[in-house]
Measured scan of single mutants.
Amino acid sequence: DRIFMTRTEALEFLLKAHQTAVDKIGHPSHKQTPADHAAIEALDRLLLDVRARRVDQFQINASAAQIIVTD
């Protein structure tokens, strides 16, 4: 599946995904793992790359739809 978004929409989408990941590892019942921190770092890099126009398409994980940034 493909989803087309403007750059602004894609950045909002990534910010929400980032916040969800941060909230998940901050929850008291969740045991933090290196994979959790790696996922947040990957989202940080992706946010910067989309914002800087170095990336025009991405996929958060293998089961997610491919996001295509349109400007």
Rank of each mutant, 00 (worst) to 15 (best):
D1S: 06
D1F: 02
I3A: 04
I3F: 05
F4G: 02
F4V: 09
F4N: 05
F4P: 03
M5D: 00
M5I: 03
R7P: 04
T8V: 15
E9C: 08
E9H: 06
E9A: 08
A10M: 01
L11G: 01
L11N: 02
L11Q: 03
F13R: 02
L14W: 01
L15F: 08
L15V: 12
K16T: 10
K16C: 06
K16Q: 04
H18K: 14
H18S: 04
H18M: 13
H18C: 06
Q19F: 06
Q19H: 08
T20W: 09
T20A: 15
D23R: 10
D23G: 07
K24L: 12
K24G: 05
K24F: 10
I25A: 07
I25M: 12
G26I: 09
G26E: 08
H27R: 10
P28A: 11
S29T: 10
H30D: 08
H30T: 04
K31R: 02
K31M: 15
K31G: 15
Q32C: 10
P34H: 09
P34K: 09
D36P: 02
D36Y: 04
A39Q: 12
A39H: 12
A39I: 13
A39G: 07
I40R: 03
I40N: 01
I40W: 02
E41M: 08
A42D: 10
L43F: 04
L43P: 00
L43C: 02
R45K: 14
L46E: 00
L46M: 07
L48I: 13
D49C: 06
V50G: 00
R51V: 10
R53E: 14
R53N: 14
R54V: 13
V55P: 01
D56Y: 14
D56V: 12
Q57P: 00
Q57N: 09
Q59H: 08
I60N: 01
I60G: 01
I60K: 01
I60P: 01
I60Q: 02
I60F: 06
I60V: 09
N61H: 13
A62W: 07
A62L: 08
A65Q: 11
A65H: 11
A65N: 07
Q66Y: 09
I67T: 02
I67P: 00
I67L: 02
V69G: 01
D71T: 08
D71V: 10
